[in-house]
Design a protein around this nucleic acid. Structure first.
Lengths: 213, 213
DNA sequence: ACAAAAGTGTTAACTTTACACCCATGT
DNA sequence: ACATGGGTGTAAAGTTAACACTTTTGT
């Protein structure tokens, strides 16, 4: 039986929650957009398959991945039986902007509430990934694993707002997040485009696993 | 590639959280205990595979299953490459007691903090299932799906205590659970072994997805 | 000096915790 | 009538939610 690893790579650019999709160049689903992914070889784990594919083909290395769900509907791929295992990753806005220098019309970041025509069952895969993310970011251990390091509080707040689907008060967010004892200042500040630059934070080495928001 | 579906079937009997394991009768891991499970056929989904196996081989039908994790380490099965997808289910104490009539020395409920020698990577699978359950029971929608219907409040409280690993105050548990607006009285009472019989509840048809405990 | 975004403190509403007695049933 | 476990209320502590002004930077 064939097994594929699929990955939902999210980011927030400009306060918008986005996902990276690839345009399919061959039938079936030619011209549709699909999740990055690859077949799993006999000598590789799922995690290796995803890491190799994303770093080699998408130029995003050292991302962290969290497993999401395994899809096994008989006809999810019309050509042959393929079982798909989906992963979630979050990438830093700054790396996205860098990477966008290499323009490729078959690779694009889409806002999650404005997706293009999606091929296979990948719309379902994406929707479940967003649902899962909603839960994952509420566990401090999963948040630390998945969220790129050296972030500002406004950055991580925007992520919460987009994923949870509602706004949060800046003062209350700060208070709660700092009180949770997960992060420490790096001493640096983010290169602000305008306005006062925000302090950069990183997760502490050892954190307690607790629920947030 | 070979894919197997594995299932962690939990119950609480006599206030103890237990898991159903089978004794392996052939090498490798002869005499070790393993999770129930079966290879996935070309014509079946993972969910069908588990449902069929559990109802036919274990005599427990109409259980609900939640997917947990997919294990793909190259050598997790020494004989051949097998990718394993694990599921979680919870079964009602009353059905467990009924089923125990059919004694089978190769099938046993073990307390989760007193497990026997476990074959393959199933100890890891079980430990992750317990961790996952800790999160799942905190989402009302997952709780409703997974928890057998017509329960008493002391029953569901004991489950929380075992899964979360600490005791909860009876009065506060009740207040919070009832306030969450998830359940309604059935009008019946549980056949108590001793003491005042507890009221039976069921989940409402429509519940809001919220976090508990 | 102005525009833009970051950072901060206080109070009221709500939620959680801690705690002790009465109730319904079987023996 | 007693033993066993189920069911209930209240007050103090802690948490969350609502709210407006000052600070730092670039232009």
């Amino acid at each position: 039986m064939n097994i594929e690893a699929l990955v939902n790579i999210f980011t927030i650019v400009d306060g918008k929650f986005k996902i990276l999709l690839l345009r399919k160049k061959t039938e079936p689903y030619k011209g549709y957009w699909i999740l990055p992914g690859n077949m799993v070889g006999k000598e590789n784990t799922l995690e290796e398959t995803i890491e190799d594919f994303v770093s080699e083909k998408l130029g995003l290395s050292n991302l962290e991945y969290e497993q999401c769900h395994t899809f096994s509907a008989i006809d999810r791929n019309p050509s042959k039986r393929v079982i798909g295992v989906s992963f979630i990753s979050i990438v830093d806005e700054r790396r996205v902007l860098l990477q966008q220098a290499t323009t490729d019309e078959n690779r694009e970041w889409f806002e999650i509430d404005n997706l293009p025509k999606i091929g296979y069952d990948h719309l379902e895969v994406i929707q479940l990934a967003i649902e899962t993310l909603k839960m994952k970011i509420r566990r401090s251990s999963a948040l630390k694993k998945i969220f790129p390091s050296d972030f500002t509080l406004p950055e991580i707040q925007k992520m919460y707002e987009q994923v949870l689907g509602h706004d949060l008060d800046r003062r209350n967010f700060r208070k709660k997040f700092v009180k949770a004892d997960l992060i420490e200042e790096t001493g640096d500040r983010a290169p602000g485009m305008t306005g006062r630059p925000a302090k950069l934070y990183q997760f502490k080495e050892e954190i307690e696993d607790k629920l947030l928001f």
